[in-house]
Measured scan of single mutants.
Amino acid sequence: EELVKLQGERVRGLKQQKASAELIEEEVAKLLKLKAQL
Rank of each mutant, 00 (worst) to 15 (best):
E25A: 13
L6T: 10
I24A: 10
R12H: 11
K5D: 04
K18T: 08
Q16H: 07
K35R: 10
L34G: 07
S20C: 08
G13Y: 07
A19F: 03
K33F: 04
G13P: 05
L38A: 14
K33L: 04
Q17A: 13
V28S: 13
L14T: 04
R12W: 10
L32V: 09
K35W: 00
G8I: 13
K33D: 15
E22I: 07
R10H: 07
Q37F: 01
K18F: 02
S20W: 00
R12D: 13
E1H: 00
K35G: 15
E25N: 12
Q17C: 00
Q17S: 12
A21N: 13
I24M: 10
R10K: 15
E26A: 15
L38G: 15
E26K: 14
E2K: 01
E26M: 14
G8D: 12
R10W: 00
I24D: 12
L3I: 08
L32E: 15
L14R: 04
V4M: 08
G13F: 12
Q16T: 08
E22N: 12
G13Q: 15
L31I: 03
Q7M: 02
L38I: 03
E25K: 11
V28A: 14
Q37C: 09
A29M: 09
L38P: 10
L3N: 04
S20K: 08
Q7D: 02
K15Q: 12
S20Q: 09
E1W: 02
S20L: 00
A21G: 07
E25D: 11
L3M: 14
L38W: 07
L31P: 13
Q37T: 08
V28W: 04
L23F: 06
Q17Y: 00
E1T: 01
Q17G: 09
K30R: 06
A19S: 06
E25F: 01
L34W: 05
E27I: 00
K5L: 03
K5V: 01
V28R: 10
K30E: 13
A21E: 13
A21D: 13
A21H: 11
I24Y: 13
K30A: 09
Q16D: 13
K15R: 08
L32W: 08
V11M: 08
L38R: 09
I24S: 06
A19N: 03
E9F: 01
K15D: 04
G13E: 15
G8A: 13
E22C: 08
K15I: 11
Q37M: 10
L32F: 04
L14E: 12
E2V: 00
Q37K: 11
A21K: 12
L31Q: 13
E22L: 07
Q37E: 15
Q7L: 02
S20M: 03
A21R: 08
R10F: 04
K15H: 07
L6H: 12
V11Y: 01
L14P: 05
L32K: 13
V4P: 01
L23Q: 15
A19V: 07
L3S: 09
R10I: 10
I24H: 14
E22W: 01
E25L: 02
V28G: 06
R12N: 10
K15M: 14
K18H: 15
E26S: 14
I24N: 07
E9T: 05
V28K: 13
K30P: 05
L38D: 11
L32P: 13
Q16C: 04
E27V: 00
R10Q: 08
G13W: 12
K5S: 02
L34D: 12
L3Y: 01
V4L: 06
K30G: 03
R12G: 13
L38Q: 14
E9I: 01
G13S: 14
S20V: 01
Q7H: 02
E22G: 10
L23C: 12
E2M: 01
K33E: 15
K15S: 06
K5G: 03
L14M: 12
A19Q: 06
K18E: 14
V4C: 02
R10S: 06
Q16G: 05
Q37R: 07
K30N: 08
R12V: 10
E2L: 01
